[in-house]
Design a protein around this nucleic acid. Structure first.
Lengths: 187, 187
DNA sequence: GTCTATAGCGGGATAGAC
DNA sequence: GTCTATCCCGCTATAGAC
């Protein structure tokens, strides 16, 4: 255990994605890490501090991942696939939903700054997707009615919903929705 | 106040849709209804009892609403619009998300039966939508790649995500996503 | 940096009077 | 059906020893 603070942050992220912000507790962290609650308060004085740190780190990591995908290829379809792989990665980490969706679902009971960070990240992702879909339409490899911004928003919302629903249904909801999104963009 | 039990059920539904299952409490109900917590326990002994009742009633009402829409018109586009109006109704009742989405987001901390009821209702809605989209494709008024079932699932997930995101962003996220769904079904 | 101990609050739930 | 009173628990958070 070299970096306790990072370890706590990582586990808190997992708990927010699985149990939700309201339901996860310092006791959960204590049990899983094998240290006392007070020790966790030493690293993150309040739950709000910890929550803010989780979202800030989550945002940073997500932005970085998307930038890597964008740099890997210019092809819109490959960039979309890269995005899908990131989403699938979230799910395969074990019954997690997206941090944004978790915060959105509890928006009225979450500290304001946490909601705003989630919102900021959502806008970033939608904007990133808009560029991918816009490029695809321009070069003719993708085809759809309406503006790229609206389509990107719809795709983002579908991913959020699919991640949540995938946990409840045994069948591959996420796969199916990703497949349909592809169909809706095909020439 | 003729029917206290129904009144409690209604308010509990609202609280689950706004605060989420974990965060809403008998104290919340007590404050809003002006009666003591113990009186609420008289009608619904445990929180799980109340939660089950909320979901059972929500499911019943949603099924009835969809059946009414289906009986009102045979036209697929009109039926889709009827569905959209129901979704919009949920949102316009004041910062609510769909009960299903609320339960899905907290699936790991919600009593099993509640999760199963949410799942059952979700399947019903997706099935209902499949018929609408299937009919539209058959008669030629709607056009899209892939199977109606997969498209219906994607539309459902997009609606869940849009309802959640709409609360966080001031702009009409829900309107935009509904508009794009229409575009994706247009000939 | 981690511990013990404890404070203070709010949660779900019950008993029993009215 | 509603009330007062109470129980026990888990939560967030702090103080202070090691």
């Amino acid at each position: 255990m070299k970096d306790r603070k990072a370890e706590i942050l990582e586990l808190a992220t997992e708990l927010i994605q699985t149990k939700g912000y309201s339901a996860f507790s310092y006791q959960d962290l204590s049990d899983r890490l094998g240290i006392r609650k007070a020790s966790i308060h030493h690293h993150y004085p309040t739950k709000e501090d910890l929550g803010k740190a989780v979202l800030a780190h989550y945002m940073e990591r997500a932005k970085k991942n998307l930038q890597v995908v964008a740099q890997t290829s210019d092809d819109p379809w490959q960039r979309l696939d890269g995005f899908f792989e990131l989403v699938r990665g979230t799910q395969q980490e074990g019954d997690r939903i997206c941090c944004i969706g978790s915060v959105y679902a509890a928006l009225t009971v979450v500290p304001q700054e946490i909601g705003e960070t989630a919102s900021h990240l959502a806008q970033f992702i939608v904007s990133w997707l808009s560029e991918v879909l816009g490029d695809g339409k321009k070069e003719g490899s993708m085809a759809f009615n309406g503006k790229p911004e609206a389509q990107a928003l719809a795709v983002f919302c579908a991913m959020q919903g699919a991640l949540q629903m995938d946990r409840a249904e045994s069948g591959g909801i996420l796969d199916s929705v990703m497949g349909q999104v592809r169909e809706n963009l095909s020439v």
